[in-house]
Design a protein around this nucleic acid. Sequence first.
DNA 1: AGAGTCAGCTGCTCTAACCAACTGAGCTAG
DNA 2: CTAGCTCAGTTGGTTAGAGCAGCTGACTCT
Lengths: 236, 236
Amino acid sequence: MARDLQERIKKLIIDRRLPSGASLPTEPELMELLGVSRNSVREALKALQAMGIVEIRHGFGTYVGPMSMAPMIEGLTFRTVAGHYRGEDSLLQLLELREAVETGLIARLAGRVPEADLAELDALVDRMDAEAATDGAVSPGTDRAFHATLYRGLGNPLLGEVMEAFWDAFHRVRTDLVAIPHDPKVTGLQHREIVDAVRSGDPLRAERAIREHFGDIRTRLSTPASNPTGTPTGTP
Amino acid sequence: MARDLQERIKKLIIDRRLPSGASLPTEPELMELLGVSRNSVREALKALQAMGIVEIRHGFGTYVGPMSMAPMIEGLTFRTVAGHYRGEDSLLQLLELREAVETGLIARLAGRVPEADLAELDALVDRMDAEAATDGAVSPGTDRAFHATLYRGLGNPLLGEVMEAFWDAFHRVRTDLVAIPHDPKVTGLQHREIVDAVRSGDPLRAERAIREHFGDIRTRLSTPASNPTGTPTGTP
DNA sequence: AGAGTCAGCTGCTCTAACCAACTGAGCTAG
DNA sequence: CTAGCTCAGTTGGTTAGAGCAGCTGACTCT
């Protein structure tokens, strides 16, 4: 029945053609509308919230969610962390997933990135180099911005979001679990090659650049310096 | 605080190294363990259930979930359906996502699929042809089995699951929303070419075969016979 | 006219009780 | 003695009512 409740609320959103951000009925209204107790309404809303379908703001109301990939990140992160502690190579699997998606897309992207985005990518690589010089490491934010900007030109918001979701999940697990050896100068060079390859319009070169980038991460991942601070929740 | 509760339960799973299927404390036990009311415990569990992290069986207990991609399918499906009704080309975006992932993987797969899987793929294509002859259409189950078998050889369970998740979401939306013109004979031919290409070990040929397959679906999608029944809720 | 305050909405948490599904021990019939 | 049934106990599912907490907007005082 709880499952059914969620379906009915989803149906309500679809039927009323509610866009993201539109306000849903209040909890008392939903109680009457669906003929169930407040508790059941709340449990259904909690589940929908976990799926990103609704957004709940305390003291304000319930709204149609942004339908982002955020919940997927949660699930993927947890799955990977749990797998890691059970001795699986779940982080490597996640990296391979990213590699597969990005290599599949980069070819289509070659020569089709707007000049404005290319300039932004150049600037981001410059920032990587600058960060490497001052901090000795590239900040995660810059790397994320690079990938986000790169795939913006696809004209497909879903693709960009999925890509960012995979990036986020990978990064969260990586920072939580393992310290990966890092040569920031190489990172800068590889990203610059990606930009140049895409700018040149050569799909094969672009694909090769991406594969090299991921191959490098994979190598660093295969010989990990296990997190010296220990597991987040207490090492056995 | 509710958010915090979920985190604490997740932490509990990680700390105790609970594998999928392990039983969690009962609701009263969690009440005492976390120092909150049963209601709050239940809402947290509902949210975790929606993310596939726990599994709740009425009258039996709560267990660590299979951590499958099932919740992602839910979210993706809803997002796509909602987008479709708002006039977006969300189904096309989903198709492009599938195409990107599969083209990114097929090259790596070429020449590396075990003979047993290849034989199974042959049998599946045969079944497609048989279904085309008798029913005039290829059953969804056969198509799904084909893709699942194809990507089994990757040695990466995550990849396979994500692929199946995308397939499921796409198929669910497709059957709910649009009737796509369908030439089962072409479907059979394209799948056979995919198998042959992979068997030949030629990555470029395999990639071309996949692109052709998706290009065909895309064409059929671009000139859709929109669901004449109209509302989403009337159609099963 | 501006800033502080309060009433009202909203969602959040708790308590207490009962319903429903499943398990397993014990009982009955063959 | 065994096969099947029944029933009690455990677990999650649902309801009800009460009070707490965050936000908004109108009202009031300076």
